[in-house]
Design a protein around this nucleic acid. Sequence first.
RNA 1: GGCCCUAUAGUUGAAUGGAUACAACAGCCCCCUCCUAAGGGGCAGGUACAGGUUCGAUUCCUGUUGGGGCUACCA
Length: 574
Amino acid sequence: MKQTLNELLDARVRAALSAAGCPDAPAVIQPAGRPEFGDYQANGVMGAAKARRMNPRALATEVVEKLDLAGIASQVEIAGPGFINITLDAAFLAGRANEALADARLGVPRPAAQRVVVDFSSPNLAKEMHVGHLRSTIIGDALARVLRYLGHEVIAQNHVGDWGTQFGMLTAYLIEVEQGGEAAIALNDLEDFYRRAKQRFDEDAEFATRAREYVVKLQGGDAQVGALWQRFLDISLHHCEEVYARLGVGLTRADVRGESAYNDDLPAVVTDLQAKGLAVESEGAQVVFLDEFRNKEGEAQAYIVQKQDGGYLYSTTDLAAVRYRAGTLHADRALYVVDARQSLHFQQMFTLARKAGYAPATLQLEHVGFGVMLGEDGKPFKTRSGGTVKLADLLEEAESRAFALVSAKNPDMAEAERREIARAVGIGAVKYADLSKNRNSDYVFSWDSMLAFEGNTAPYLQYAYTRIRSVFRRAEGWDETAPVVLSDPAERLLALELARFADTLDDVARETMPHFLCAYLYELAGKFMRFYEACPVLKSEGEVRASRLRLCQLTADTLRTGLGLLGIQVLETM
RNA sequence: GGCCCUAUAGUUGAAUGGAUACAACAGCCCCCUCCUAAGGGGCAGGUACAGGUUCGAUUCCUGUUGGGGCUACCA
């Protein structure tokens, strides 16, 4: 039975605590805060002693006596009020590295598999994707990749906005520009197309009436309007797919299940809620009063599922979607990677989905929220002209800045190769800038920080990888089965970091926090850079040389895999 | 008004209740006859305020102040 490092230490320390008379005490294992405290610390003794009115130092002594870390730790010490400091045995760390090298999964254990729905990206198809869509798209993609890597069955759901009044306006405008023979040009810039359609809608009452009629026709299943709507969606989705392709995001048409897909279910949802006594009429609308949420008068807060005019809302659509995800997709866990402003909506929706029986207790429902984007002035982000930055423009700028840098560093390199490197570096920098931040925080959009290529950035990690590749291009004749042997401190620190990969992935999947993986990879790359400076690889000899090459190999494999899970490419040279 | 999020070096960010708060950028100083200097080493600099819980608080609780969001028919 494979275990992560944390699981292994946790099990051993808990066994010792149990033997010392504290059967249910948590071990509280964590990486040591300072190098002189060893590699790991177990902090559970203080709490356990407190709960049992024991002397913590005495309990720590007893736990350490019972603690079996033979072949794992070289030193176990008690410090301070009852910390247990564990220094791992170099031979054990070398063994972990050797096991990882022998395993295609780098020694990462598979947890019990779940079926996980990940709802992410979900752009509004009426407009072009802008920087505000970046977070959901890449956080969701990274989570989907990590969950898949761990062995879960992931069902991506791109819950696109493809329904509602604005599509009547857009299809009506599409007909107009087609009659003028300018449809292809007009649709080239979706943002502009929307703006013009809106202008027509606001200025021309006749057009506005026609647009409203189209909405009714569309929702009534009219074939002609439906065909126009489909064409518009096709073009809009194509725009999205160009962005996904550039970002290296794995979403396809098969993952698209937009709001329109639930259209036929909406009346049934409302009827069902009424039948269950949950939805009632109030001020002409169909409303569910949820006791769990109070309004300003202290009464149960209203959650509208059908408007006065009979129209439906995103609440209704999301209820239909959760019913589908539970009932048809049989999900064990559903993640909603959606902006934090919708937090209340999701709390209400989840609560109602449970009450209505759409989501069984066994289905974990999680709103994976993220902070809103701010400008450099700390206020909600807008460009100087008051608009938004198109995602495509950001990516273009990223590639062009990276291209200038690559060209400056490699003037003799063929342009095609420089372009390829610039693409991976530029896109990687944009993604990493976003993924490396705690998603709960609001996020300041800045061209310079988004497009930085030094320090804690994707290019730093990519650069570490190319350095390793460069070593291997020069290493002639080496033993690809040689064991890792650790002697130099820099080797040991690198091996220790490598051994933490599996725990990191567990943390990312459990907490839905991609920035844990970024922080890990940055640490790993840093440990490698120091090893690289301190320990000559190719100029060393014998088993030391072979061992160092093997460490390089595992580092490269881990960096490539980890960056791959973030959707960031590695390069042979840069 | 109520509810949610948030406040960490000059700046942008990290820190499952653990020991002397971790980085990057910007600043200053070193290191390419040495496996790619997009790198490495060093200096300097920080938890909004006031209480509380705890053996121990950036973390939990209360209050104050500042920022953002949501709060019945947009999503």
